[in-house]
Design a protein around this nucleic acid. Structure first.
Length: 127
DNA sequence: CCCTGATTCGC
DNA sequence: GCGAATCAGG
């Protein structure tokens, strides 16, 4: 009989809990003092209805915030297959974009850049 | 990566 | 109801 497992929070621990909590200690500190896990402290505290302090984080009710569609700059506007994906400007530049011109049927790039790619490739290879 | 606290699940 | 687990934020 008597001391049947102090598994639960007895008045003694509750006293320390409230004291440390009211003292301004953090759950981790209180748990460390009482020798319990911080989960046990916060769990008990929450259950008791003691005033909490931090964390305005609201887990309840926040499935998914419909983030407003970000306006795509210009760099990857229409990635259609009939758009010339020829790089314009510097690839390291923020305003880097693609040609966006209409490509010839069967051509990966527009007629202009297709010819450039060909000339460049053949010219380089030949050189 | 550290800390904080809250909420939720399982026992 | 307790404790741990998990999530979420600074």
């Amino acid at each position: 009989m008597a001391e049947s497992a102090v598994s639960a929070w007895t008045d003694d621990r509750l006293e320390q809990l409230k004291q440390l909590w009211a003292d301004g200690l953090s759950i981790t500190q209180i748990g460390n003092e009482l020798g319990v896990s911080r989960n046990a402290v916060v769990g008990k505290v929450h259950r008791m209805g003691l005033p909490k302090r931090q964390s305005p984080i609201v887990r309840s009710d926040k499935p998914v915030e419909p983030k407003k569609r970000k306006l795509s700059p210009l760099a990857a506007q229409e990635w259609d297959r009939n758009k010339c994906s020829w790089p314009i400007g510097d690839p390291k530049s923020p305003d880097f974009k693609f040609c966006g011109e209409r490509v010839e049927p069967g051509r990966p790039y527009c007629t202009t850049h297709c010819a450039v790619a060909y000339t460049n490739m053949r010219n380089t290879a030949a050189a």
